[in-house]
């Protein structure tokens, strides 16, 4: 956490010259509740997944593994679903798979978006016009439509969570590009950038020392947004019958539960646990994002 860049380097000195770094970190975490809660949830999910994967057979997350429609009990702490999946195993493997799609598609999409956004806004001219133009043209076209065409034309045996992540990624960069571009555009008019320019700092230097640190909260926010988009995109593809339906992706499970009228039939545990799982994965990211906003802003940090 400590190497998150700070906008005013001179502010660093007084803060870190005190006791041990670790002590300081804990003190800080106690003040920054959203960061702490977010990290704790994420830690819980990681431990849950690792311990789960070591102790629970992956077969139990698939159909016909255990007896079906069992409410939570000592044998099945989270119950079993209509198809005979052990919901505990589903949560272990499904959480991992869902996070994987989100991180691959969201991370790569954000990276591309940040790069293009920077290039576009900073250099301007034809480059800007081209990048902005292409993004704006692609932006309004419902991504969903294109994903359906691509997913629908694949051999179903090739549809895995990785191909799914890739399909989502193809069209996940325009949003970050446009947002980053407008941010950089506004930021490069700021006095400190002008000062740096006057004092002879090069473009690259300005980007890395002046602009990037200030944009970090936005980049993280974009990443979180993209992870959300990726997870939901794979969910929506499941709804239209595409995507790796057999895999215990949390979205797949929720959709299957809804298709069987789970609430109406009283099998509440079937959709509820995956929904909680989704809320925890995405919520912890969002909380960490909120926490980082504070961390990266010295003034707010001081004021607490």
């Amino acid at each position: 956490m400590a190497n998150i860049s700070l906008p005013q380097p001179q502010a660093q000195a007084p803060v870190f010259s005190q006791p041990g770094r670790l002590t300081l970190l804990f003190r800080y975490l106690r003040r920054n509740m959203s960061l702490t809660i977010g990290l704790l949830i994420m830690l819980f999910l990681i431990v849950f997944t690792i311990v789960g994967m070591l102790t629970i057979e992956s077969e139990n997350a698939y159909a016909l593994a255990v007896s079906s429609k069992q409410p939570p009990s000592a044998e099945f702490p989270l119950g079993t679903d209509f198809f005979g999946r052990d919901m505990l195993a589903v949560m272990v493997y499904g959480t991992w798979q869902t996070a994987l799609i989100g991180i691959i598609a969201g991370g790569a999409g954000t990276l591309v978006g940040v790069l293009l956004g920077f290039i576009s806004a900073y250099f301007g001219g034809i480059i800007d016009a081209a990048i902005k133009g292409i993004s704006q043209i692609l932006m309004p076209i419902p991504v969903f439509l294109i994903q359906i065409v691509i997913a629908g034309s694949l051999d179903k045996r090739d549809v895995t969570i990785y191909t799914m992540a890739f399909i989502v990624l193809i069209l996940a960069w325009m949003g970050p590009t446009l947002v980053m571009r407008s941010q950089v555009l506004s930021m490069k008019e700021r006095p400190y950038v002008a000062v740096a320019k006057l004092s002879g700092v090069g473009d690259i230097g300005i980007i890395f020392t002046e602009i990037l640190p200030n944009l970090l909260p936005f980049i993280v926010a974009q990443f979180v947004t993209q992870v959300f988009a990726a997870v939901f995109a794979s969910f929506y593809l499941a709804i239209v019958g595409l995507g790796p339906l057999r895999e215990p992706l949390l979205g797949n499970i929720i959709w299957a539960a809804m298709g069987q009228g789970a609430f109406f039939n009283g099998w509440w545990w079937w959709p509820v646990f995956p929904a909680v799982g989704l809320a925890l994965i995405l919520g912890s990211l969002a909380l960490i994002n909120m926490g980082l906003d504070e961390l990266s802003n010295p003034r707010v940090r001081r004021s607490e």
Partner: peptide, 10 residues
Amino acid sequence: VLLQGVPPVL
């Protein structure tokens, strides 16, 4: 912020 993780369908 947490609620955002639950699909609108659900």
